[in-house]
C-alpha cells in the first residue's frame, strides 16, 4: 500500500474512471466553474456600476430581494435581457451550482466504478443540495 502505484487498489490506474482520473476531472470542473462564474459576475458588476454607480445605497434594513432575483427562471430571463443585477445573480447561481456539479460528477464516477455504498452516499448529498437549490421556497 506504500507504493505510488497502489494508490487506487480497486480500479486499475489505466481505467478512465480511476480515482486519479476522477480527481483530475473534478479539479478541472471546479476551476472552470469558479472562473466562468467570476467572469459573469465581473461583467454584471461593471454594468451595474456604469448604470447605477451614483445611486445611493444602504443595507442597514433587510427588505429581501425582489422575486426577479430569487428564482432560477427569473434570474435567467433577466440576465438574457442584460439586467445588470440579474447578470450578477446568474454568475452567483453558477457559482453555487459548481459544488453541486462536482457532487454529480463524483456520483457518475462511483456508478462507473460499481461502488454501491458510495453511489448511495453521494446520491443523498446530491439530493440534499438539489433540494436547497431548487425546491426550498420558504
Amino acid at each position: 500500500m506504500n507504493t505510488p502505484a497502489a494508490k487506487t487498489p480497486r480500479t486499475p490506474p489505466t481505467s478512465r474512471w480511476s480515482d486519479h482520473a476522477v480527481e483530475q476531472l473534478v479539479g478541472r470542473l471546479l476551476q472552470t466553474g469558479v472562473l466562468a462564474a467570476a467572469a459573469i459576475v465581473l461583467v454584471g458588476g461593471v454594468l451595474l456600476l456604469v448604470r447605477h454607480g451614483s445611486a445611493p445605497v444602504s443595507y442597514s434594513v433587510f427588505h429581501g430581494e425582489p422575486e426577479l432575483l430569487r428564482s432560477i427562471g427569473a434570474i435567467v430571463r433577466g440576465a438574457l435581457a442584460m439586467d445588470p443585477q440579474a447578470v450578477v445573480q446568474l454568475g452567483l447561481l453558477l457559482l453555487i451550482a459548481t459544488p453541486v456539479a462536482r457532487v454529480a460528477l463524483t456520483l457518475v464516477a462511483f456508478i462507473l466504478q460499481h461502488d454501491r455504498t458510495y453511489v448511495l452516499i453521494t446520491s443523498v448529498v446530491l439530493a440534499l443540495l438539489l433540494y436547497g437549490l431548487i425546491f426550498d421556497k420558504t
Binding site: 462536482r102 443540495l129 436547497g132
Partner: peptide
C-alpha cells in the same frame, strides 16, 4: 464549497443574496 452551497441555495430563494453587495465581496 458543498456545505456553503446547501444553505446558499436556500438563502438565494429567501432573498438574502443581494447582487450589488455580493459582487464586490465575491470578486
Amino acid at each position: 464549497g458543498v456545505t456553503a452551497a446547501a444553505s446558499a441555495g436556500v438563502y438565494l430563494h429567501r432573498g438574502y443574496i443581494d447582487p450589488t453587495l455580493s459582487f464586490p465581496v465575491m470578486l
